[in-house]
Simulated scan of single mutants.
Amino acid sequence: MIFSLFSALSFSQTKDTIVHAYMSVQNYEMNPSEIKKTINPKKIDYEGSYHFGESEGESDLEIIFSNNKLYARTEYADWENNTWVGKSDRLPIEYSKHKTVIDKTEYELSISDNEKGLISHYYKNVGEKTHHYIQFNPSNDIEKPQGKYPESSFVKLTLKELTELPKSELKIMRNEIFARNGYIFKSGGKMDTYFSKKIWYKPIKKDNINFSDIEKHNIELILKLE
């Protein structure tokens, strides 16, 4: 990603507006002038894992770019049967005019102290004053699934999305899920020939593969179309 060009965000404080900036949660205040937005970011620039909240309210907004689309999900922990269990929910995401709207919230790609992040804006009227809150959510590297269709191991796909692909590609997408989990294909078969050429493919076992709930969902859905 190239961050060579930036423009300072206009967070000027006026007589009737008070500007606040903070990182992830309001406990971590920032100087608004330290936050800058990228100029004309591309879709792929939004790829990353963005941290929100703290302690029991922590979550990560994860975004990947694949086949000219953005896919987003939120990763968080939930209390189940006296155990903290990791959860993952897909979020709707739209990209337009260098901005993204994720689950009805608009975000802009930005940087602070050489750290990439997303900024969002919130406003609250208190008496005759308007409080403008700027939230900066920093990003970490994301472990993107390998292959042509990483989204099939990242989010639960829909029939509408899958019907856009020919059956030949659906077969590759479905078997790619198996390949990512080290499945050993029939020696000399089409899938064995196809995946053996992929650097990331590491055949490990034939049976007892622990697919994620996301992968199970997508395998079943793809099989219906095939």
Rank of each mutant, 00 (worst) to 15 (best):
K186S: 08
I177L: 05
Y183G: 06
E128V: 06
K202E: 08
K198A: 09
K42V: 06
Q13S: 13
Y107M: 09
S59T: 06
T83I: 12
S59A: 11
Y28L: 15
T17D: 04
K156F: 00
E161F: 09
E54V: 03
K190H: 02
T100L: 07
P138F: 03
K124H: 11
E54N: 13
H121S: 10
M1Y: 01
G53E: 05
K116W: 01
H98Q: 12
Y194E: 12
T100W: 00
G182P: 04
G127Y: 09
A72F: 07
I44L: 08
D103K: 15
I219T: 07
H51L: 14
H217D: 13
P138Y: 10
E58G: 09
K124V: 15
F211K: 05
E94S: 09
N114W: 13
K42L: 12
I35V: 15
D60K: 14
P150N: 08
V25L: 04
F154Y: 08
K160S: 12
S120R: 15
K148I: 12
K224Q: 15
R180A: 05
S55L: 07
V155H: 05
V155D: 02
N31V: 05
G189N: 13
V155F: 07
T17F: 06
D89M: 12
K206I: 13
I63K: 09
I39D: 12
S49W: 00
T105Y: 05
S196W: 02
V19N: 11
Y201D: 02
E80F: 10
S112H: 03
D103S: 15
G188K: 06
L170R: 09
N68G: 03
M23Y: 00
K186Q: 10
T100P: 00
D213A: 08
F65T: 01
